[in-house]
Write a protein that binds this DNA or RNA. Structure first.
Lengths: 156, 156
DNA sequence: CCCCGGATGAGACTGAGTATCAGGCAAGCC
DNA sequence: GGCTTGCCTGATACTCAGTCTCATCCGGGG
């Protein structure tokens, strides 16, 4: 099943209605190459001449976030964006600072490290967040041209 | 030398003027118990009947951030705040989700882990960020009362 | 096919942060 | 101590992401 369907399915499984707006949003999210913002989605919706309200986009992103279909990133440049990701296990993101593509990284050893840091400081750790930023193999390998081609928000 | 002086000194050392506004801001920042926002500082300035513009606060925080005297945190509840911290080495923050107090945590093993994750995925890692949230010993030990007493933004 | 609660879009609102600009003042110079 | 210069400041307008409200709409169970 393709990404769009996976997202629509996630809505259904959680007991939410399947509506044209949500289907559209699912397509837009699934068609994103890297991370994207609510404004990106709105733009792409407008490009398709689809009529969807800003509020609806924020509501859908909020839902998808709570369903762990997407996650919110805080980028180093103090803006933020969403990325699609694996809903099944706790993980972190390795984000390309050029094209925005993101790889899910399993928590692995980190859990142990986090635990130890907490213990050493007497804190009871509740949550942690690790975000890694760098240049992905694609952007590194083929230079700026590929980076542009791979730019975020490709054909929806 | 106390924290206020340390901050004022940081301005001077970097070649910036020492002005009443900056001195005030230094005091407010130094007097913060945990993390704080620009709005918090503005409130506390007003409480002292000190006249300082919003823009000035943001400018000072921006400077202090660039001097690594404070750092910006992205809190789990999607808001953000600043904390004072050690300007001398790369580190992360362990933040109390109740009182906002923050402990600097040396990078240590993490660097190795980050490096390995990058290598495994073919990324050239540029920066990373780790943020830990939990309950500090003070809040855990003495319950809600102490947590309130220790609340952020104590006597400036 | 009807009904109703969930979903929607428009638009007002908020709060953090930025830009602009005229006036103020720190600090080096004499 | 006065002068000058350029950094610094406060007020204010603005932007941008996200939220709230509310009248209307419509998916889907009965």
């Amino acid at each position: 099943m393709d990404q769009t369907t996976r997202i629509v399915r996630a809505f259904e499984d959680a007991g939410y209605q399947t509506t044209p707006s949500r289907r559209l949003l699912a397509e837009l999210v699934a068609g994103s190459r890297g991370h994207f913002s609510a404004a990106d989605l709105l733009d792409r919706a407008r490009q398709r001449r689809a009529k969807v309200g800003r509020a609806t986009i924020f509501r859908a992103l909020e839902l998808l976030t709570s369903l762990h279909v997407v996650e919110r990133l805080d980028l180093p440049n103090r803006s933020h964006a969403y990325v699609m990701c694996d809903p099944d296990e706790h993980h972190h993101h390795l984000v390309c600072s050029r094209c925005g593509r993101s790889v899910d990284v399993a928590d692995g050893e980190l859990a142990r490290l986090v635990d130890e840091i907490g213990r050493r400081n007497g804190y009871r750790i509740e949550t942690h967040r690790l975000e890694l930023f760098g240049i992905c193999p694609l952007c590194a390998g083929t230079g700026a041209a590929a980076a542009v081609a791979a730019d975020r928000g490709g054909p929806a």
